[in-house]
């Protein structure tokens, strides 16, 4: 099997000088795929994603994007390399309009980004409607769409979402998942961390179950949903 498009390969590390939180953890995703990281609270799900994005010290192991070793790059440099990241909280500019949020997403681009903006608007029609409204005035689900839209403005080669459905109602969550599937269909690989393990695994092409910073189970979403041990421990039977 050839090397995946984005891989965090046997990563071990932690924050600053603190203890290791990840132990030999591997996360990967390919174009057109949705990869989901699930696990119990404190399992290091978000930490694993931050490690891939360069927000923590990876002491051994490597992160490679399209075959290139980017382990030593800062998050900002990774954005330039084509990684889009949507943090879990404070992921929009609340005092700016929806359109300005998207413009700021495209800040590193010097070319004409109007076409990308139209693409984002066609993915998230509600944003076009509210383009001149302050992002902070939108509902929780709409804010998450702004956040994802902002990250898409760089035309990333890979999109990473940290718990995109945290704190939204089940109906909004379903809608968000639909949007995420649509984004994946455009060919962008998506790596995402999710609390709602069952729903997330249902749309996942790859699933990673982490326990205490280690890979506990890996497989397609369907395989993991069918795995009795995974069902028992993480999905409540």
């Amino acid at each position: 099997m050839s090397e995946p498009f984005l891989i965090g390969d046997s990563m071990t590390g932690g924050y600053g000088k603190g203890p290791d939180i990840l132990h030999d953890c591997t996360i990967a995703v390919n174009p057109g795929e949705i990869a989901v990281i699930v696990g119990p609270n404190g399992a290091g799900k978000s930490t694993a994603m931050k490690a891939v994005f360069g927000m923590l010290d990876v002491r051994s192991g490597a992160v490679r994007l399209d075959g290139e070793d980017i382990t030593k790059l800062t998050p900002q440099e990774r954005v330039v390399k084509g990684m889009g990241f949507v943090p879990q909280t404070s992921n929009i500019f609340t005092s700016m309009t929806v359109e300005e949020n998207l413009e700021m997403g495209a800040f590193i681009r010097r070319d004409d980004f109007r076409e990308t903006m139209e693409q984002v608007y066609s993915l998230f029609p509600i944003l076009k409607e509210k383009r001149n409204q302050a992002a902070g005035e939108l509902s929780g689900g709409q804010r998450q769409q702004v956040a994802v839209g902002r990250a898409l403005m760089t035309q990333p080669k890979v999109l990473m979402l940290d718990e995109p459905t945290a704190g939204v109602s089940p109906i909004v969550m379903d809608e968000l998942f639909d949007r995420i599937i649509e984004v994946a269909r455009t060919g962008i690989p998506i790596l995402m961390v999710e609390q709602n393990a069952r729903q997330a695994l249902e749309i996942a092409d790859r699933g990673y179950v982490l326990v205490q910073g280690r890979n506990a189970h890996t497989g397609t979403g369907k395989e993991l949903l069918a795995d009795p041990e995974v069902r028992q421990s993480f999905l409540g039977g």
Partner: peptide, 21 residues
Amino acid sequence: RTGKSMRAFSDNEDLALLSGI
């Protein structure tokens, strides 16, 4: 563009850095 990036920085410094400001 520069003015907007200032407002973005004032609003949410971390996200502004992530956006390459």
